[in-house]
Amino acid sequence: MDRRAAADLLKEKFPDAVQSVEEFRGETTVAVDSVRLRDVMKHLKDGEALRYDLLLDLTAVDFADESPRFRMVYLLYSTRFGDRLRIRTRVAEGGALDTLSDIWKAADWLEREVYDMFGIRFSGHPDLRRILLDEGFVGHPLRKDFPLKGTEFDQPFWSFVFQPKTPI
């Protein structure tokens, strides 16, 4: 199956949801309206000519000075057609996206990581809590306004551990 075709099929099926199709270095990126994300993804997985059965990765990017602030990126692969596709959508700070963890179980942990690192919430996620950092950690490190060294870099370790923190 040709690469271009997947984006075209998607455009036909969801003319209102597909915002743009980009080609860069031989990779196709389809920008999708966040409200229709779930429908599009369900179709991508189950659609007869699509069959993107492997959710390789799911991540976010922080464009701090743009609005809406975050971009969500989904990397899909179809084992039947050997085809890759990238879906992206925008989400505002404090906003929430629909979870995909019931479509692909892989999204469960990946969405937790995005929540941990960016603070983006996923409505309908069964167990949305931090995955890599401590429960008491304040802030979301991969946001552009979070300093690389954190806020307590120069303090001795024990003050870090024993300072009472308000869980987020």
Binding site: F24, T29, V73, L75, R86
Partner: peptide, 20 residues
Amino acid sequence: RGEVYASIESSKGELGFYLI
């Protein structure tokens, strides 16, 4: 400017780098 994804088969599975 742009974004790319390149992946290889590492000993554990598909290892990919997504760069912007």
